[in-house]
Design a protein around this nucleic acid. Structure first.
Lengths: 241, 241
DNA sequence: TAGACAGAGTGAACATCATTCACAGTTCGG
DNA sequence: CCGAACTGTGAATGATGTTCACTCTGTCTA
């Protein structure tokens, strides 16, 4: 499995360098700035030589996208592992912060990964409901903490009407030891997951500047309220006065 | 203001047709499929002639984007106006449903509008915190209902720690009669707004298929829980059992 | 009303891009 | 050690945005 022959090692290096240059171009000028010609120029190669490593530009971008998901997954999970083991809520918060932080530091990458699907990269020809969808990589880590929270009996969630039927049935497959998740837990996770995505994506895509000046403070306020809800400590406030 | 001379009328028609064709191309093949050459071909014109109407391809796309925001604004607000005037919560729900529905029926447009900023269309050179940001057009309608809800004293919101400081100060400018919005109300709106964006964008961008089969049911469940929270009727459920 | 002027369209040109192909050099395995 | 697979080359094709010098034609003014 590990490259042994010279050619294989050389090839792996080339693939890695191509993806590195592609990422640099992405960061510098957005997805449309990733061009085989620019890559070949920077690497001192012919453009056609790149086709020995990737079937097309789209294939390259798809590979890069996959690698970025791995990176984001590593980052969030290592943030989780630095949080105290016995406090799932703190672990969730740590992951959420790491998620946002990485996104802010890698806006273009974030857009490529979690923006609208790019034409040839994740088109409708791909199987739509692939169970190993790249997005799952990072989402599942959150799900795991919700499962742990539920296992301890400290998870407080709103009772939702007809919860059955619309969740992917084998979702607890991802969770350690097949937790046999209550659908309500999955709903609680999804609710938090979509909300997290909303805040972060909106900020990174620049759709929040018209309403919020200090997005970090807003994010922390949302996080605090979220933690309060998880602990069942919501103290509501009635109308004006 | 209204075009009177023949040339002006003719010009307005041409501009409209160009944007129409551009939109058709967008729908058919994504943003990268919008090309001046394809437009000119379809219109039986020379490509260079298009430069009499738009300074560049990016300018065309930007104009199209603006028009799409107007359309989405009209759709959501007309959905609101069909809901009972005396029930702000129902009005918010109607707008949320219309928002999602329009997005699902116009995925490419939605991506262009609310996805990551496209290179030349909404680049960093544009003024970042423009108060008339296009996203505001649709968001403000939601804010208005929250203001109304608050005015009636029926809005129940969580108490959030240090709310001052990170909100755009002149946000109540948008609200009818300058409501002098309590920051807490703005926070409640933003919380709902980001959440709504999260659910809808995630679904439209295809980032939810790995976890949810029937996204419509999930959306309705979230909506119901949201309405319950707004009315202060959350009935929580403790851990496993 | 006649002429000046701005608007609208043309066709050629240049630079960029992805992709393919026949060809040649290099490395590996039997 | 020799054939086969791998890696790279250079030319070619056809797509793209953008510019420029031109014509032609409405429109407005003197």
């Amino acid at each position: 499995m590990v490259p042994t022959t010279w050619r294989e090692r050389r090839r792996a290096e080339a693939v890695a360098e191509i993806k590195d240059v592609a990422r640099r171009l992405l960061v510098a000028g957005g997805p449309s700035a990733i061009s085989l010609r620019a890559i070949s120029r920077e690497m001192g190669m012919t453009t056609s030589a790149l086709y020995r490593y990737f079937a097309s530009l789209d294939a390259l971008v798809a590979a890069l996208r996959g690698e970025l998901f791995e990176e984001l997954g590593r980052v969030t999970q290592s943030a989780r592992d630095e949080a105290p083991t016995d406090d799932p809520i703190l672990r969730v918060l740590a992951m959420a912060r790491a998620f946002r932080q990485w996104g802010l530091e890698h806006r273009q990458e974030f857009g490529l990964m979690l923006g609208p699907p790019v034409a040839g990269v994740a088109g409708p020809d791909q199987e739509p409901s692939a169970p190993d969808d790249a997005v799952a990589c990072v989402g599942v880590a959150f799900l795991g903490e919700f499962a742990e929270l539920w296992r301890r009996g400290t998870l407080v969630i709103p009772a939702v009407d007809p919860i059955e039927g619309y969740l992917v049935p084998s979702l607890d497959m991802y969770v350690a030891e097949r937790a046999d998740l209550e659908p309500l837990v999955v709903f609680a996770f999804l609710s938090a997951w979509t909300k997290l995505y909303g805040i972060i994506a909106m900020e990174i895509f620049g759709h929040m500047t018209w309403a919020v000046t200090d997005t970090e403070e807003f994010f922390e306020a949302e996080l605090a309220e979220f933690a309060r809800q998880l602990a069942g400590e919501t103290n509501n406030v009635p109308g004006p006065g």
